Simulated assay, not measured.
Amino acid sequence: MAGPLILFRTPYFRGPVPLAGVPDALRDHFTADQARLREADAVVFHIPDWRPTQLHDTPKYPGQLWVLWSMESSVNYPRMGDPAFLRHFDLFVTYERSADIWSSYLPPMAQWQTALQVPQPSKPEAAPLVLFQSALIDGCGRNAFSGALMRRIPVDSYGRVYRNRTLAEDLGRQSKLDTISRYHFCLSLENSLSPDYVTEKLFDPLLVGTVPVYRGAPNAAEFAPEHSYIDAEAYSGPKGLADYLRHLLQSPAEYAAYFAWRQRPLPDWIEEKLRASATSCWLRLLERVDTARTGRRSGRPALPFGFRAALSARTTRLLRRLGGRQSPPVQFQ
């Protein structure tokens, strides 16, 4: 195999690593075989799966690049803001625009084009808002915010958080999207208020024809058409927000204005972001590693976290193995 070899040192949330967008012809450049660590040109660590007892003894070979990978908010993973930790990595694959390899939550161009062509769905539900939230991670008070809002305006909640409705038939993601499209508004709350951390919470309702009531990244306007969503932070708290939503329900023309973007071509700046993120982040990483390769140099590997940390990791792992506890193998999907 000519070209670089990229090894994934960790699983992805203890499951298979998604190699979305990597054609079969290039999959041999990626491996989960930990026995090939020495020959790898780059080693990828998924930070939410970082366990010091598993990884502090990972040797770094001369000429090898270490890659930090995370699509989760840095607010919820303090290591991503620790300079002493970050200095061990050469490349960064994250949602942050400043990353070496930007990995975006933006839906592909085809989904935006479909949204521009599909007629506006009807809104038959009695409650004006819908909420899908099951994760308990809450670094910004979103649960308290949604609870306070629900005391002031009806919200149908289908997730584990404040559940008061269930799906008649749950066929997965499509059932969720179909349900969202039946409401005037979707309460879209990120688990942190972090710049650039704009996830499907904003995009799902936007593309199915429902107005997102969004609380999240302070620069979310850089990822969505103008006047296409409601900034939940702009109304002096849940009471002011509820008053504004009731006003929109009584003012059809003002409500309809939130869909005017669907009658126009996408702004150039959104298309530019879509083009920048169209190619799989793994293919862009492969190209970056290939460009950086200068030939593997001989020499002894280093223990970036030090001998004591390595010894502690190996001892803990040995004890776990003796106790029958095994770490999940790294696989691809």
Rank of each mutant, 00 (worst) to 15 (best):
A2N: 13
L5P: 05
I6L: 15
R9L: 12
T10C: 11
T10P: 06
P11R: 14
Y12L: 09
P18D: 01
A20R: 14
A20V: 09
G21H: 11
G21R: 12
V22A: 04
P23W: 05
H29C: 05
R38N: 06
L55I: 07
H56G: 03
P59D: 00
K60G: 12
Q64Y: 11
L68E: 00
M71C: 05
E72D: 03
V75W: 09
V75H: 13
N76Y: 01
Y77E: 06
M80Y: 01
M80R: 06
M80D: 00
D82G: 10
A84T: 11
R87V: 10
F89S: 05
D90R: 13
T94F: 01
I101C: 06
S103G: 08
P107A: 03
M109H: 09
A110W: 03
Q111N: 11
Q111E: 13
W112M: 14
W112T: 13
Q113D: 03
A115P: 03
S122A: 15
E125V: 08
F132R: 04
A135N: 15
L136R: 12
C140R: 12
A148W: 11
A148T: 09
M150A: 15
M150Q: 14
D156T: 05
S157L: 12
R160I: 02
R160N: 04
R160E: 05
R163K: 14
A168S: 13
D170A: 13
R173D: 02
Q174D: 12
S175E: 04
L177E: 03
R182M: 04
R182S: 02
R182A: 04
S188I: 10
S188K: 10
E190W: 07
L193A: 01
S194E: 13
P195V: 06
Y197T: 03
E200K: 10
F203I: 03
D204H: 03
P205F: 06
L207Y: 00
V208M: 09
Y214E: 02
G216R: 09
A217Q: 00
N219Q: 04
A220Q: 04
A224H: 06
P225Y: 07
E226S: 11
E226V: 11
E226L: 13
I230W: 01
D231H: 15
A234N: 13
G240Q: 15
L241S: 09
Y244P: 08
L245F: 07
L245Q: 01
L248C: 09
E254N: 09
Y255L: 08
P265Q: 07
P265S: 09
L266P: 01
P267E: 05
P267N: 04
W269Y: 11
W269M: 09
E271V: 13
E271K: 15
E272Q: 14
E272S: 12
E272C: 08
K273D: 00
R275E: 14
S280F: 03
C281K: 11
W282I: 08
L283G: 09
L283T: 10
R284C: 07
R288E: 06
T291W: 07
R293D: 12
R296H: 11
S298P: 11
A302F: 01
A309R: 10
A313E: 00
T315C: 13
R317D: 15
G324F: 13
P328C: 11
Q331E: 08
